[in-house]
Simulated assay, not measured.
Amino acid sequence: MDSIGLKNALIINRRLSFAFGCAMLALLLMMGTAFSQTLPNWVQTKTFSQPFTKEYLPNNQINTMTENPASLGILASGILRQTAWKLQKSGLTSAMIMAPLQQDLERQGFEILFECPEKTCGGFDFRFQLELFPEPHMHVDYNDYYYILARKNGALGSDIVVLLASRSNTSGYLHMRRISAESEDRLPFELILGDAVPMAQTLTPAKRANENLENTLISNGFVVLETVGFKSGGTDILVTDRSELSALAAFIKSRPEVSVTLVGHTDNLGSLEGNIKLSLERAQSLLKFMLTEFDVPPAQISAQGIGYLSPRDNNQTAEARAHNRRVEALINQAQN
């Protein structure tokens, strides 16, 4: 996309976000409801803080960056506060989630330094520049996320906020990383997310992960193991969060009548024969991991590989190819 096209895309996106935010405010005024009540059902999934951090925060597209650290973004230092939330609601988009938050930032005197939707940010590569909580605390759909970097200057220095909004088919997700020289604990977005409750008061992350995976397996007959990945051409599994595999193991053990097949997939680089072999080796690598780490009964789990015959993305970019390198768990038969 050329610079004019990118500029027009951002203008259109901001107009849509502004229109959504105005509609939300108009509705609230008609209802006589305070702005702090706009998102009453958000659930805080995780929070973290540390007394000092010094890091670069992305303020440009991934494809315009170089290896020089100073060009990777703005340098921020201070107290780190990081929080993630989840809203159980279908039909959301990242722009819908972000619109009222962006307005609230600007209303409180923050300057928007950089914003982008997933395609203009840089997709898969841009997302993995960001320090985010792993699943199930924060989920990122590589085809629908929105990033904002904002700054407000104060007497003690800059207050910098990084927001990332995304969604799944059933929920919205929001991640905030705030770096500030100020010591007070009040976060800028408590005005909007003030009714969020810690997940510990509802479901533990492990129990929620178990229920989500079980529901997907039962309704669809399979589930993509999103926390398991592979480097191109490699068979060593890269597990970003063990809770998903733990949930799969719990599901198998609780249903002795069920058999699950781990099906390996590849991108389209190389021959079909080579990729079928590679995908099988990947599935077998995960099978061994499930047997040794989670003590899954061997009779209830097996491995297959189908190479690049069933892509879920177009293989035209590095991001799309990484999306296709995966393992799926498939319910394939009932044990007699």
Rank of each mutant, 00 (worst) to 15 (best):
S166G: 04
Y145L: 03
M138D: 03
D159S: 04
N143P: 09
I148V: 15
H137R: 12
S158R: 05
D159K: 06
K152P: 07
D141S: 06
A165C: 03
A155L: 13
S158D: 15
S158P: 14
D159E: 01
D159F: 06
Y145Q: 00
L163P: 05
L164P: 06
V140I: 13
I160D: 03
L163Y: 02
M138F: 06
I148P: 01
V161F: 02
V162L: 15
N143C: 05
Y142W: 15
A155Y: 11
V161E: 01
R151N: 03
Y147G: 12
A150W: 04
Y145V: 00
R151V: 10
A155P: 08
A150L: 14
G157M: 04
L163V: 09
L164I: 15
V140C: 07
D141Q: 09
K152T: 12
A165I: 05
H139V: 08
Y142P: 14
A150I: 11
Y146I: 11
N143R: 15
L164S: 14
L149I: 07
G154Y: 11
A150C: 15
Y146C: 00
V162A: 13
D141T: 05
D141L: 11
V140G: 08
Y145F: 08
Y147N: 06
Y142G: 12
V162E: 12
V140P: 00
D141R: 10
K152W: 11
G157F: 05
N153F: 03
M138P: 08
H137Y: 09
D159L: 08
K152A: 12
I160E: 01
G157V: 11
S166M: 09
L156R: 11
D159I: 06
D141A: 06
V140R: 07
L149V: 06
S158V: 04
H139D: 01
M138E: 02
A165D: 01
V162F: 11
Y145K: 10
Y142V: 14
A165P: 09
R151Q: 13
S158K: 10
Y146F: 06
K152Y: 08
